[in-house]
Design a binder for these strands. Structure first.
Length: 358
DNA sequence: AACAACGTCAACCGCGACGAC
DNA sequence: CGTCGTCGCGGTTGACGTTGT
């Protein structure tokens, strides 16, 4: 059967924003009688509205137990957690957030939380790392660098065979970038914000870590995310994952490779202080590039908070001249495992050996 | 100052679930 | 068991405010 829309037969009924008079009538009636039958209510309350409109106005706005104002970090965390399990079941999610309506949560998700997750590189629908077109477009740039024919980046001391190897290397970098996109949350640039981490953000990151598995988050070995911090009001995310150490180490080991891949790490240390969480040492713009053709960043930046994080110490070590050779070998081995292409092994070994022997 | 673009959120719409008969 | 009426949910819209040009 085809049912007539709720208010069709009563098209003279008012629609649109509610006036204070209407609100007062509705509140007065419900406080004295309860809502009873929503369909019957408007007539009984003296309102020229359909019952559906009255119910919506009451449940989303007039109900006395409605909480107003900004969502707390805890509420955000609950919403994200529940959404990852329940999906768009706003009413179910709302039952876990006293005073919040499903409509309010839905709006907050669509206007705020979705964006936050997208900035983190998380697909808000699946709660998994994004693999969308925009990110793949970055890869196309990277691939173009790998094209040897029209490249003017290879100058002395590169010979032809090394050019080929570098091209293959760029292709592997592309792979690496793809893996990064597939397997981890990108580290978002926040070079000027050094916000102390808090439990909410660490919880959030570990939530995703548990969804993806720490081995996926960190193919270089190690554990969960060490630190995650954010400026909620600024909608700026700043994540720190162990995987960053691996990229730092690799890019650092390539540093100074004249005419080829270079890496640049800038460290700013604000006199690390174990007692003061606002102190930080911070990498800005860790990236891998060719001399004339900058590559998209493998890692943008991250803030590292001194103290409990062992990776902070590792990064310090890297910044001061890189890890010892055995550490580089270990990192290389880990990387090699990621590459199932039989060509990558020898090419990268050649390049790295060339660099390390220099 | 005027206009456009963008963001937010209250309200609407259509559909499915469910209970009464 | 089928039909009907009501309710509630989730997607979408559009008015309004804010920000950028």
């Amino acid at each position: 059967m085809v049912r007539a829309p709720c208010c069709d037969e009563e098209s003279s009924l008012k629609k649109g924003p509610w006036t204070t008079e209407e609100d007062a009538k509705l509140m007065d009636y419900i406080s004295r009688n309860g809502h009873g039958s929503w369909r019957a209510l408007p007539k009984l309350a003296g309102l020229n509205r359909c019952g559906k409109s009255c119910r919506l106005r009451w449940t989303n706005y007039l109900r006395p137990d409605i909480k107003r104002g900004k969502f707390s970090e805890e509420e955000e965390r609950v919403i994200i957690n529940l959404h990852s399990v329940l999906g768009n079941k706003w009413s179910k999610i709302a039952t876990h957030l006293p005073g919040r309506t499903d409509n309010e949560i839905k709006n907050y998700w669509n206007t705020q939380l979705r964006k936050k997750l997208l900035h983190m590189g998380i697909d808000p629908n699946t709660h998994r790392p994004r693999t969308d077109l925009n990110q793949l477009l970055d890869l196309s740039k990277l691939l173009s660098v790998a094209s040897v024919g029209n490249s003017n980046m290879m100058t002395s001391p590169w010979d032809n065979s090394l050019k080929l190897k570098a091209a293959a290397g760029a292709a592997q970098l592309t792979k690496m970038q793809l893996l990064q996109h597939l397997y981890m949350m990108p580290v978002v640039r926040t070079s000027n914000s050094r916000v102390p981490p808090n439990n909410y953000n660490v919880d959030l990151m570990n939530h995703y870590s548990s969804l993806f598995g720490s081995h996926i988050l960190n193919p270089f070995g190690g554990g969960h995310v060490n630190r995650a911090s954010t400026m909620l009001s600024g909608q700026e995310w700043n994540l720190q994952a162990d995987i960053v150490d691996g990229f730092h180490a690799i890019s650092n080991s390539l540093e100074g490779f004249e005419g080829g891949f270079g890496a640049q790490g800038v460290i700013s240390s604000n006199s690390p202080d174990q007692e003061n969480m606002s102190s930080s040492c911070c990498y800005d713009d860790i990236y891998v590039q060719t001399k004339n053709h900058p590559l998209p960043a493998l890692v943008s930046s991250s803030s590292v908070y001194p103290g409990t994080s062992s990776s902070a110490a590792n990064q310090m070590e890297i910044s001061m001249g890189g890890p010892a050779a055995p550490a580089r070998t270990a990192i290389f081995d880990a990387w090699e495992k990621l590459m199932d292409d039989e060509t990558s092994e020898s090419y990268w070994k050649d390049i790295l050996e060339y660099v390390l022997a220099d």
